[in-house]
Structure formats: C-alpha cells, structure tokens
Design a binder for these strands. Structure first.
Lengths: 134, 134
DNA sequence: ACGTATAATGCAAATCTTTGCATATGCAAA
DNA sequence: TTTGCATATGCAAAGATTTGCATTATACGT
C-alpha cells in the first residue's frame, strides 16, 4: 500500500485538532494545502484509515459521522441524548467485556470506538426536578 | 403523542419480517397499504420509534442503516468485516458491562443495540491458511 | 531507467438521509 | 360541533455519502 498524500494531510489535520471532526471539516482543513482535492477522495482516504485502525469513525447522533485519531490509546464515549454532552471513558473499562465476548464467540473484535447513548447525571436530575414541579 | 398510521404500518412490517430492514425496504413494504406515503415520513416515523426504544437502528457497515423491532428482548450483534456474517448475542452477555459503566459514570444507558465489528472464526482461519500458503 | 500492475484520484451521477415550510389531521376542550 | 393546538405528513430542496468509470500516480521487479 502506497502512501497517499491525502491520507497524510488527514492524519496531520486530525492530530492537530485533537477532537472529533466531520468529513466536511476534514475536507475544509485539507483544502488549505491541497486546493484541488475532491470530497470523495477524502471519504475514501478516511475509509482506508478507519480500516487500518488508525482513525475511528462514529455516529454521535449528530447526523454526520465524525472522525478521530486513535494514536493516543483507545477510548470510548458516552453521549447524552438530552444535552448532547460527550463523556470519554478509557479502554480499560471496556477491555474485560471485549475479552469475554471474544472468547465466548471466537470472534476477534476490531471495533475500537464505542458510542453509548443515554442520559447523563445532570439530565437525570432535571427529569426528576420537572417531575417534582408538577 | 397521537398514534400515527405510518408508525403502525412500520411496526407491523417489522414484526412480520423479523429481520433487519433498511429504510427503503420498510418504505417499499408500507407502500402496499399506504400508496401515497412519503419517504421522509417513513424516516421521521422510524426516528420516533427509535427514540421511543421500540425499534433499533444500526449501521451494520452496509452503507445503509437497518431497523429492527426490539419487542422480543434486547440483543446485540457481531459483524464480520471480511465475510459480513452477522452473529447475535444476548443481552445477558452485555448487561453486567452496561451496569458497571452506568454506576461508574452515573450515566443511564439507553443504547439497546450494540454492533461490534471484527473477524469471525472462519475468516480468522482463512487468514492463517493464506499465510501458510505463502 | 522502463514497463507494468496496483492503488489513488477526480468527476459526475446515484443513493441515502435530513430539513424547512406549508398543509392536513387527530385529540381535547369549549 | 366547533375551535385551538400539537403533531404528522407531503413536497421539494439541501446535505451527506457512496459508487462507476476514466485517468493519473506510485511502487516494484526487470
């Protein structure tokens, strides 16, 4: 597999931003250096990087996939469906679960970025409060 | 919230099929009874059902979201990235993991359909075989 | 250095999904 | 029944993502 300049640009962009970027944001960033680059090229490069396990892609419920560099360790996210707050959890809290699944099913898990939707503690309290107010 | 006829039709379709359907498949099915129904109406009805927790939506890596009825118990899936085989695992294998995450983070998990990508046992063997052949 | 196979890219079209706005519909109170 | 309100729907446009095909660039063996 040969080195792609678009892949390089993507990796540098993601490592500079250190956050979740949409494909459009990645595209806009890259245009600075590679003005002629095409959207579909960015999509395909991102797809390759995800397959290689260098980058994660997730649907955070924002109606647009977000990409993130995975070099500094695997991690996962809890996304609040009410306030959209995103919390990060370390891979150590997921590791043993993954191991159990792998052993039981003879299945080698590749997924490296789990997104769990739910209600954060703040919003849980708000629900209780609004109930009490009635 | 009032009962929507499209929601009804979706629920009946999903319960009849008992499998993962794309929004297009749902749309086609429903057209039999409600010929004038619009795609976006189906999308919105599916969205509501997902929010209500009656239906799950997942990206199985097929480039089109698939929907499934959740009435007969929560379950989750392992998807092989090589052969696209889909395995089902029960919620009992996930429950304790969810509980631990919930307690540690004071976060109430709503996610009811986990998709884990990886390599199934067959494809693992194939990789080993092709290595040996070289 | 040369030729070839493989992979990356651009472009345009197709597909999938969301959204804004106007309209229609069902439900509950008057 | 009628009225008012919230929700569901249709329609069209926009946005997001994928794909087929032709072209270009790169790596690798010779």
């Amino acid at each position: 597999m040969r080195a792609s300049s678009v892949e390089q640009a993507i990796l540098e962009t993601l490592s500079k931003e250190h956050s979740h970027l949409t494909s459009l944001q990645v595209f806009e960033e890259i245009r600075g250096r590679l003005p002629a680059v095409n959207q579909s090229t960015v999509y395909r490069a991102l797809e390759r990087l995800v397959e290689q396990g260098v980058v994660s892609v997730s649907d955070m419920g924002t109606h647009a996939a977000v990409y993130e560099l995975l070099t500094d360790g695997r991690h996962h996210h809890l996304v609040c469906q009410k306030c959209r707050r995103v919390m990060t959890i370390g891979h150590e809290d997921v590791q043993s679960f993954f191991n159990a699944i792998q052993e039981k099913n003879h299945f080698q898990i590749v997924t490296n970025h789990l997104i769990l939707f739910g209600i954060c503690d703040n919003c849980q309290e708000n629900v209780e409060n609004s109930r009490a107010e009635k």
